[in-house]
Design a protein around this nucleic acid. Sequence first.
DNA 1: TCTATTTTGTATCAATCGATACAAAATAGA
DNA 2: TCTATTTTGTATCGATTGATACAAAATAGA
Lengths: 202, 202
Amino acid sequence: MARPRQQDTKQLLDAATQLFWRQGFAATGTREIELALGLKSPAIYHRFHSKHGLFCASLRHYIESVIDWRIRHYLDAEDALTGLCAFFESIPQNAKRFQQPSSCLLVNTSLERASADEEIQACLHEGTHKIFLALRSNLLRLQAQHLLAPNAKIDQLADNLQLQLFGLLVSSRLNNEHHSLADKARHIIATLPITATTGANE
Amino acid sequence: MARPRQQDTKQLLDAATQLFWRQGFAATGTREIELALGLKSPAIYHRFHSKHGLFCASLRHYIESVIDWRIRHYLDAEDALTGLCAFFESIPQNAKRFQQPSSCLLVNTSLERASADEEIQACLHEGTHKIFLALRSNLLRLQAQHLLAPNAKIDQLADNLQLQLFGLLVSSRLNNEHHSLADKARHIIATLPITATTGANE
DNA sequence: TCTATTTTGTATCAATCGATACAAAATAGA
DNA sequence: TCTATTTTGTATCGATTGATACAAAATAGA
């Protein structure tokens, strides 16, 4: 009943997310967005109403693709401890693989002026809460397997792991030497109150 | 031999630093800078050559004022342990006092696109290295006072403390609830390998 | 007082910003 | 085939961007 779309929304959001991820909201212009998305601005504004709307959609897309994938692939992995280690180690690995630190769109945005916006803040809160819950769930599984001290305060521990995750992402943009970043990631794992040595840590 | 300056450079950089700190490089326009500095753009460009030049000068000014003050006042305090605790606790306290999280200009900038610039990266490296050295020096004093395990790896520990500092600053922009932030800060201190209880921790 | 030197403001630049009016293009159902 | 509906491109909008040409303003030394 109507003209079909040349690019589906997923494709567009993939491209937009990459752009905002790398450069931030303010530093990304509409002309640059047109090139990356392969659509002229009226077509983009027809679907997303504004640059702000496209950015919010990109944030949600980032959570549903990147964040959710990382949670499923690492933190929810069958072997909880191996997954947790791989989760942190993937950050220096990605920085090495793609020659530039990827950081995290949520962390980047939280430090931009854009974070003052209510809708954006809601997205950021949702995304970071997902990460917290996934870390928490992973730690609970570790505890159930008697790999974590039975009196460990899981909520505090998950909160602190998320804190260190944020710090690692900041460090990855400050210093992209692989060895230094990998050391930092290893230290995060090594200081977990693991009770038994299974060969996965240290 | 020439017309005297209406505002000295320190005043200008104080204002510019506040602006970039709050909003970032890309989101801060020249008209806004004019208002904050109380000078028209030609006078500003006469002193700093470009917006980029003003930003670099602001970064250096931030290191020499904010960062150096925090190191002197907290990390280099006579009582090393109390100073270290106060260093981390000052972040939730400042977020509460000024009703908005201050974060850190160096951390904010490292996640902006601007961080790709070589001159800016050198400033960021200098500032963060200063923090690392101050944390390291504080830990060495703790160890000399037998408050820290004698086999503790000071460099790794200082590196990780800086990592958690970065994480705390990110968290302060994501969630400005004072109690939650204060908990995070307290947890950082509580997990230090302190050997004796002096009343300052736990 | 006059001149050399530096700082500042007026006015404005081309370029780019985010955004839109409008019509052509492309389909599905009648 | 015709029409209703949606998507897309052309062309362009006023506003703002970072930056500058130029002259007035303000001092110190001659």
